[in-house]
């Protein structure tokens, strides 16, 4: 059980680091929002499941899973609201220069 939870947590950390690199490297708001949503979906899932496995069965595990479900409901809403505000205020998506 301990080893399984360590594997989950390390995989989650990998996705969190990739998302942070993406937030630095990608060129504009719209593509950065993809990196943030990568963290929110798979990174948070793997991290929180690993932590819940570490704690073992009980009320705490149930509470951590409730937080996870809450994250899955809330995050698409926030990302959509931000991207829609960016699009409506007239921002143009970045395009690769064709040379």
């Amino acid at each position: 059980m301990e080893i399984l939870s360590i594997i989950f947590i390390v995989a989650g950390l990998f996705f969190l680091i990739v998302a942070a690199i993406g937030v630095i490297r990608l060129p504009d708001v719209f593509s950065r929002s993809h990196a943030v949503s990568l963290t929110d979906s798979l990174g948070a899932f793997l991290m929180l499941v690993g932590i819940a496995l570490h704690g073992g069965l009980g009320t705490n595990m149930l509470k951590i899973l409730v937080v996870l479900a809450l994250l899955y409901i809330i995050n698409p809403v926030i990302t959509h609201a931000t991207v829609r505000a960016a699009l409506r205020s007239g921002l143009k998506p970045w395009k690769k220069e064709t040379s």
Partner: peptide, 22 residues
């Protein structure tokens, strides 16, 4: 919600049944 939750695609605008996806 499914499109936004999938990494790499974000719903940017919804109007009845027309969606603009980035």
């Amino acid at each position: 919600n499914s499109i936004t939750l999938t990494p790499g695609t974000v719903t940017a605008e919804v109007d009845r049944n027309k969606l603009i996806v980035h």
